[in-house]
Amino acid sequence: MELLDFARGPAISVALAIFVFGTVWRLVALFGLPRMHDLSVPRPGTPGPIVAGTKEIFRRMWPRHEFSQLSMFSFLNGYVFHIGLAIIVFAFAPHILFLKGLTGLHWPALPNNVVYAVGAITVISLLAALIHRLTSPVLRLISTMNDYFSWFITLLPVVTGLMAASHLGARYETLLAIHILSVCALLIWFPFGKLMHAFLIFISRGTTGAFLARRGIQF
């Protein structure tokens, strides 16, 4: 069995299984946890938890005026690579075919050259995020190996994908196999590291919003 056969066959199947196992495990464990009953009396006139939580989710999508100068780069750069990653994963024809093979669903793709350009911008944006993290004293202080490894495992499929598309460094089938294996690594790490925020970020923001609203905190 050649490397590409291994990547397209058992490797991606096992990686997907681990991804699903870890994600379901964490979500079921999280939602099944015993809830702390808030015995405090809600402040009068405050919205219900769903409205407050939803408002908080949207409010946190843009920096507050007071912190705009300080955190604007993180916000904008974050949008660039998150949207970039979404375009790469969901708008590149071969990726759509991969997802179609798994789910049966498919949709129109963007031209390859557009996706390649988005890929290059995403790599630059991810590198900028790392430099920002390393040069900011506060961010550096609160960063752990989990953050750096999650960054690396996110960057890897984008770089290997661009290398495969441009036949850079090795034969195409080898680069394609390395690209698929890097996606496997991402899938395996996803539920157990910081990348899980993809599933949890809106839950945590909503919960925080509901909690603060009950105490009458207004932004």
Binding site: G9, V14, F98, L102
Partner: peptide
């Protein structure tokens, strides 16, 4: 070429 060659992916994922 982009699709997985494994015919058991659905079974693995369901089991997982």
């Amino acid at each position: 070429l982009a699709a997985s060659t494994s015919t058991k992916t659905g079974m693995y994922v369901g089991g997982a």
